[in-house]
Nucleic acid binder design. Structure first.
Lengths: 332, 332
DNA sequence: CAGGCGAATGTAATCGATTACGATACTGAT
DNA sequence: ATCAGTATCGTAATCGATTACATTCGCCTG
């Protein structure tokens, strides 16, 4: 940096101001001289030194339960692009949906000096979250609301679920089971709400026996479905609250020898790569994953620019992709 | 840090040595005093300052073509665990399989001061790679070899492919097509080799008309398969060199109305989540993804410990998961 | 014309840990 | 008793960019 300063005939302070200070802090001509010197020498500012001075690294963190879940990887794609546009790298951390792990990861990220965190929380407030707030690191809630006043980006789970369940009803099913997720996770609670709302709107009572909860992983979807199918009065359709459990549900259904949609209709939240290829084609509510991720990055960037701004919430609609697993096509 | 020093009655230099210096550099009793003081005060070393001094951040980078590919996310999982065990975070960067993007990402990572890079290269040496080497940042090749002498971790593609193709032959197929990837990518070339070897070993000539190349993405798998099926003498089986193209191939096959395995047998490299659910169950060579990722982390850690050590190569076997898509079961 | 103000820039302190260099004390050998 | 050698620890420089504070200069006002 001092080489640049010498070459441009200014001090290092001026070089710094020309490169990263506000536009008004340096005379136009001086700035040009500095930029030319930078160009000639091929100077690249040292990020590590800058990080120390600024007390923050140019890194955003994405904290999710499992990077193996295609929903989160798709979100990560959008988030990464958004972060890169703001000249930030992305660290990804898994929590395995375990609150203690989530807290630990957050503490590590705070220590790491990340500039912002996007968090798909397990639902429990933790010491890690507290520390992040105390360190004034912006936190954006992804997919799941956090009680306090955090910026949030999510898909409209209630509406998407209601639409999917509505489609099942329109196809003539009335005994529709829900395979839901933990109620502490707001997106899961929302989807349950949508399920119940759709039933009520069509004058169908919610049957507690048809509502079961998994842990959002494949195995739990399988087990829950198997139990439903083995019960005295099995349902005529199931709505599964996320993609992984849906895969488990499908395994259980095929294992039972039932045919979709004749014996059992199915729809789920969260589209997945193979949904078309699994016969007869599985209906799903597709989330705008890329835009969720990009939106999260955007919220972080804005919050950094104006820390005091009012809390913002981005809620994007999902889109029901109707496929034959629903059963009869709806009347147009 | 000076608080700790004062409390322990030593200098900051001693604190630093006690915490991160070699064991011999400080008297046992002194170290204990320091550690106690650290405990009492709740001191946490500042990573940003340490990074500046050490001229390197405690971060590993994973550079892949597309984090949306489940193979890479599965690898990422193992890599992340391995990195964390060594107290490093993980940055993930996508290249979209574009050499220029790969080079740019690498340059950014070098500037970022990452401590090590795991790279699934597009196959072209780039300025970014040069810079990484010049900066003495260890680079481990993942899945795909890089010409020069880099540590490498990969699955045995030739053997896995030969096994899968061998199974198709054992099931009575002789006209077996290959949907391969770009030859510049070593893992793809290996799989092609395995394909050809299996054919030769069974006295079947390699028919150039049955060998087509995609770009490893789903659409190319679809198009290549559609073209094969529409040809004058369509194959009796296909072996697809990766998971994404396999999904595309399946779409094309179903669209053509053909039945698996009666009309067309299929097997692919890289197992994927839905392979069981897609009828009749799609045979695939499963890679030990988690261990590939963990192995990459391990290679990085060792290379950092001994920069001069001889080049190491970890090659892990894949496992053919036989499913009905192959056709007749092999004679036991 | 004095005094005040703002724009533009320079000087040097600062972020917090690491480490080169030097000082001290203690060991054992001669 | 003297001295080399080693183990242990302290002082202060260092990493490279940012920024508080000081300085200079020009311009405007009363």
């Amino acid at each position: 940096m001092s080489d640049v300063a010498r070459r441009a005939g200014v001090s290092t302070a001026t070089v710094s101001r020309a490169l990263s200070g506000p536009a008004s802090s340096v005379r136009g001509e001086t700035r040009d001289r500095v930029l030319r010197a930078v160009e000639e020498i091929g100077y690249v500012p040292d990020r590590l030194a800058r990080n120390l001075r600024r007390r923050s690294a140019q890194i955003f963190a994405l904290v999710v339960s499992d990077i193996g879940n295609p929903f989160f990887t798709a979100v990560a794609r959008g988030f990464e692009d958004g972060a890169r546009a703001a000249d930030h790298s992305v660290i990804i951390a898994d929590t395995d949906e375990i609150p203690a792990v989530e807290s630990r990861r957050l503490l590590e990220l705070v220590a790491e000096g990340v500039a912002g965190i996007v968090l798909a929380s397990t639902g429990t407030t933790s010491e890690g979250l507290e520390q992040a707030v105390r360190a004034r690191i912006p936190v954006v809630a992804l997919d799941r609301r956090i009680d306090a006043g955090f910026d949030t980006v999510a898909c409209d789970g209630a509406r998407g679920a209601a639409e999917a369940v509505g489609a099942l009803i329109a196809a003539g099913r009335r005994r529709i089971a829900l395979i839901g997720g933990p109620e502490a996770i707001s997106s899961m609670a929302d989807r349950r709400d949508g399920y119940e709302r759709a039933l009520r709107e069509h004058g169908i009572a919610v049957d507690p026996e048809l509502v079961v909860h998994g842990d959002m992983r494949e195995a739990s979807g399988h087990d829950a479905t198997a139990a439903l199918l083995a019960s005295a009065r099995p349902p005529g359709a199931v709505f599964v609250a996320n993609n992984l459990m849906a895969m488990g549900a499908l395994r259980a259904i095929f294992a039972s020898g039932r045919r979709i949609p004749d014996d059992l209709a199915i729809a789920c939240f969260d589209d997945f790569a193979a949904s078309e290829l699994i016969p007869p084609g599985i209906a799903a509510v597709a989330q705008p994953t890329y835009r969720l991720g990009a939106g999260a990055a955007e919220l972080l960037v804005r919050r950094i620019a104006e820390p005091g701004a009012p809390v913002r919430e981005i809620v994007l609609p999902g889109r029901l992709i109707e496929r034959p697993s629903i059963g009869l096509a709806r009347a147009a």
